[in-house]
């Protein structure tokens, strides 16, 4: 028995103002992706998009998205990502300017999650450089010590619950 192989694209949504990240939701991302793939690859792309592409996880605080694709054609989906310039949502009138930056491609969601934890830790290290006061530094240091994969898992579970609540 052979399982379906997938690829998980771990993407970061970069926006000019961090506040607008709160507006993200999975449906908007999915719709934006669909439109971008359709624009770049036409009907063929849309057909491949309809099978197997879904948004697995979204963290609206850091703007991180997991996109799952079939392994056979993840490059086709990926090549449409650079052409995204704003989020498209049918309901919303305002367009959020953004771009997608792919930071990791993983074979399982587990490895991608591990990478994400490591990546977020790296971001905290980068923040440490920009700190001006000692209090800020202490705060970041405490955050650094508190993050491990176990903790992250719990936090992510909390986050998902939170986002589900928002949807309802």
């Amino acid at each position: 028995m052979v399982r379906f192989k997938s690829r998980y694209l771990l993407c970061e949504v970069c926006v000019p103002e961090r506040n607008s990240l709160q507006l993200l939701d999975e449906r908007a991302i999915h719709h934006t992706l669909r439109a971008a793939v359709n624009r770049a690859h036409g009907d063929y792309g849309s057909a491949l998009f309809n099978i197997g592409v879904n948004v697995k996880y979204l963290n609206a605080l850091t703007g991180v998205v997991f996109i799952r694709c079939r392994k056979a054609h993840y490059r086709l989906i990926w090549s449409a990502l650079p052409f995204i310039t704003h989020l498209e949502d049918r309901g919303q009138t305002q367009n959020v300017q953004c771009f997608f930056n792919c930071i990791h491609v993983g074979g399982t969601i587990k490895t991608s999650q591990k990478f994400l934890a490591q990546y977020n830790r790296q971001q905290l290290h980068r923040m440490l450089l920009d700190c001006n006061t000692d209090a800020e530094k202490q705060h970041v240091r405490r955050a650094l010590l508190s993050c491990s994969v176990g903790n992250v898992k719990r936090e992510e579970a909390d986050d998902e619950e939170g986002s589900d609540d928002d949807d309802e």
Partner: peptide, 11 residues
């Protein structure tokens, strides 16, 4: 906003 990541460009 017109910059893209290096891996995206390689793809």
């Amino acid at each position: 906003l017109e910059m893209r990541g290096p891996y995206d460009i390689a793809n």
